[in-house]
Design a binder for these strands. Structure first.
Lengths: 352, 352
DNA sequence: AGCGGAACCTAAAACGTTTTAGATTCGCCC
DNA sequence: GGGCGAATCTAAAACGTTTTAGGTTCCGCT
């Protein structure tokens, strides 16, 4: 591999000049720069990022650590869209993106640091839920941290979160506005903010209408298709079953859809189903899901931008950025619902 | 940040010894090693990967370049599972994983090299379809390359591919074995191997039964839910419509499902639908999809392992590794079909 | 006591870049 | 032609690590 010294030698200048020239920095004559550039392309010179990082004392790279509340960052329908936003923002700023290993029993913070330690990376994005102790340990290793889709109350760790409470309220209100009076909740039985915020939002909506919350109508369950299907069956087994159900995840809504189907009932006639997230498949279920569109890519983008700013010494305010979702009305609740535009722009490119 | 010199100084040894000790290399007394280790943990020393990379002349890192036949690596239902396998293999070998920017009009090979150039990365994995010229240009920059889910005929570029021809044949044969005689194909209208291999497999199956291939029954279309739905409608509009259809992607099968629904018909009674890929959602459609399980994670894993081997100077044979999928029988073709085990192992971890 | 060799340790160079401080050249004006 | 300042260039140090070649210490043996 040619180095900058090779380029410099062939161009008849010093490495310092070559460096300046190739980065179009002032202080080098246009003629010289052209010369250096020509030699560089001739040699197919590619600057060695590692050398540059060492010299500059910064990596211009961000690490991503995946939380515990997902199977794998790549296989999670929700988080991969967050990651997509991260990638966009990171690359737009000419930063690199490095992915830390998936968390598993046996990997500790020090193991993580072998991949995304200081020097390798200017900071890390923690996507989803991570044990607060771990986050502290990461901070202690001298890394800048931003957390996405979770936050650590009582700490100063910057975060980008979604307003799940307001979102759940919005969805529930939609159902109430449609005339439903017995609305069930298939919630998440997890010990982090998402779990209780969605419940609170659901209750907020009921309270705003002066309705009591029937405890029999709220089922907390594991996040997953099967668990949600079971919970929905439970709801439908009730002597006085709900006419609508809010599910805190679209994959869980798919479970609810299945449960209704298994009983030979119909959505939305017999049970209206609303989800949250708006993942790709949500537009293609039968019937298409009415749901809350959580700005997943936007969250990732914002988090990455904040982390990069932080690593440059700026301090974005507020410390916690909260985004809100929008209601997407499709068919699963019976409301009219024109077909909403799909999320994001498709980047379709031809081949050859 | 403490450096190895700090550790060495406090431990009263030279940096060289500290380096040896921390990596548990021979030539240092157990007592000394313990001492150095203690100082290191005391100082929360984390070795600087950048320094190490420069010194060793290798990055112990792999880059991933995403092909043109996907919106974004992260948002593609199929490829993100490939990526998952890549991550697993890479991290199991203590390599780092860096993701190159998504391809868009305007980014060239040189732009890519700013993120995954030689020195930053020991090699790159090209996931999916990339213009052969680009691959050549990457090779010219001195990078080791392995291609996954595509291959470059006429070149020496190592690849890991799936036997789409055999897979399509398997699926079609399943339908034929079920007694269907008019089987349609909703194929991919793309100019890379996947497109024609699936068609060939479909024809192979027909030919093996001595059946003619009715050209009216094969529809080549864009890869996507809507296009597939339209193609299915086209098939059903035929005076002599098929009783079964093979769709070369599960997302396309979902489009077919929708088309059938839109006509008030039923799957599988009025039209049997079979897909290919087996992505997460395929088990949760109505009815659940009979499909070909392409070993996506395995492909990623294998490709990563080959790339790492290559970067260490080994040359795995054969140059092109071909994996085969397995038929997953669910309900969408009417066959009995016990519920097959889900793919992969769930890595469920508690919180705090 | 002297020798040989193993075991342990270290100095210094090397990796490829950027940056800093200083040197040289050039053009211009008096 | 001399002097000045700006423009252009360069030498050398620095970043944090590993490796190589060599140095020292220590032990056991004769």
């Amino acid at each position: 591999m040619p180095t900058i010294r090779d380029v410099a030698r062939l161009a008849g200048v010093s490495p310092a000049t070559a460096s300046l020239a190739l980065r179009a920095r002032p202080g080098v004559r246009a003629l010289t720069r052209k010369l250096v550039e020509d030699v560089a392309t001739e040699l197919r010179y590619v600057p060695n990022l590692t050398g540059r990082r060492l010299a500059r004392g910064r990596a211009d790279a961000l690490g991503v650590i995946q939380g515990l509340n997902m199977t794998t960052l790549f296989s999670d329908a929700f988080y991969r869209l967050v990651l997509s936003g991260v990638g966009e923002a990171v690359h737009a700023s000419d930063y690199s993106l490095v992915i830390a290993p998936a968390l598993r029993p046996g990997v500790g913070v020090d193991h993580l640091m072998r991949f995304v330690g200081p020097g390798t990376v200017d900071g890390v994005l923690i996507v989803g839920v991570l044990d607060p102790e771990w986050v502290l340990a990461i901070l202690e290793r001298g890394l800048t941290v931003v957390v996405v889709d979770n936050h650590l109350p009582g700490t100063k760790v910057p975060a980008v979160v979604h307003d799940y409470r307001g979102g759940a309220r919005l969805v529930t209100e939609h159902l109430l506005a449609l005339g439903h009076r017995r609305v069930g909740l298939v919630g998440a039985d997890v010990a982090y903010p998402f779990g209780w915020e969605t419940q609170d939002g659901y209750r907020d909506a009921l309270a705003a209408r002066g309705l009591d919350c029937d405890p029999a109508l709220v089922r907390l369950t594991a996040i997953g298709v099967d668990a949600a299907a079971a919970a929905t069956h439970g709801l439908l087994d009730l002597p006085d079953p709900p006419t609508a159900v809010v599910t805190v995840t679209d994959m869980m809504a798919i479970g609810a859809l299945r449960a209704v189907r298994e009983r030979g009932l119909r959505v939305p006639e017999d049970l209206a189903v609303a989800g949250m997230d708006d993942v790709e498949i949500s537009a293609h279920t039968d019937p298409p899901l009415t749901t809350l569109r959580v700005p997943k890519e936007e969250m990732g983008r914002l988090a990455a931008e904040r982390l990069m700013a932080l690593s440059r010494g700026e301090s974005p305010v507020p410390r916690i950025a909260e985004l809100s979702g929008t209601l997407i009305v499709r068919k699963s609740c019976g409301a009219a619902g024109s077909d909403p535009a799909p999320e994001g722009r498709a980047t379709s490119l031809g081949y050859a």
